[in-house]
């Protein structure tokens, strides 16, 4: 009989770059206490880490909590165990996107539009990426942003056309190399 060893959720997270120290968390809560946006998290950072270690994959990835991380790194600067909570949140986001979880947040769509903008242009094309995001989420919400967009436009801060650079071909080749496991 063949037994397949499936890596646990914790192993999966710990294998992502910068997340290897998740096992050293002492649950002190400095991350949750420091978090700029903790009030919006159903499960604050300390609890998310505990849930990952308890193998609660679906509960973590179906929740919108991790998507409120603004990457301000206060948690990471203060963590006494150097476990880099901000990086762990982004690692969890990446797993959620890859495995098609659908947490109740629009940030998933925003991140996907952001990544697509890089693939298509080599650089972020701010106007195009925002347009794609609003068309995919709520085009009417874009109306609220119109005055701001207009003022940026009149101050020459919102070019309407993308500037696709040659380097984008290299980026896509590099992505292909990583997806296919390199030259091995």
């Amino acid at each position: 009989m063949e037994t397949k060893l499936k890596p646990s959720f914790l192993d999966e997270v710990a294998s992502i770059p910068a997340c290897g120290k998740i096992n050293e968390c002492v649950q002190c809560g400095v991350c949750s206490g420091s978090c700029t946006t903790a009030a919006h998290w159903e499960h604050p950072p300390r609890k998310i880490i505990a849930m990952v270690r308890a193998g609660m994959k679906d509960e973590v990835l179906n929740s919108s909590s991790i998507w409120y991380c603004v990457s301000c790194y206060l948690c990471t600067a203060r963590c006494p165990r150097d476990i880099k909570p901000a990086n762990i949140m982004h690692a969890l986001e990446a797993i959620a996107l890859k495995e098609n979880y659908r947490p109740p947040t629009k940030t998933t769509t925003m991140y996907r539009s952001f990544a697509r903008s890089i693939e298509q242009n080599g650089r972020i094309y701010e106007f195009g990426f925002m347009l794609e995001y609003f068309l995919k989420t709520n085009p009417f919400a874009a109306l609220k942003m119109l005055p701001m967009a207009f003022s940026l436009l009149t101050h020459k801060r919102m070019p309407l056309l993308p500037k696709a650079v040659k380097g984008r071909h290299q980026l896509n080749q590099m992505f292909h190399n990583i997806t296919t496991g390199g030259s091995r």
């Binding site: 992502i16 770059p17 690692a91 952001f114 890089i118 972020i124 590099m174």
Partner: peptide, 25 residues
């Protein structure tokens, strides 16, 4: 010359290895 995006934080929320690769470029 011909610089490309560093990936910023959102790309780390999509794929960390790819994010680090474009930063490394």
């Amino acid at each position: 010359e011909d610089w490309t995006c560093c990936g910023s934080s959102p790309f780390s929320g999509v794929d960390k290895v790819k994010a680090m690769a474009i930063t490394a470029r």
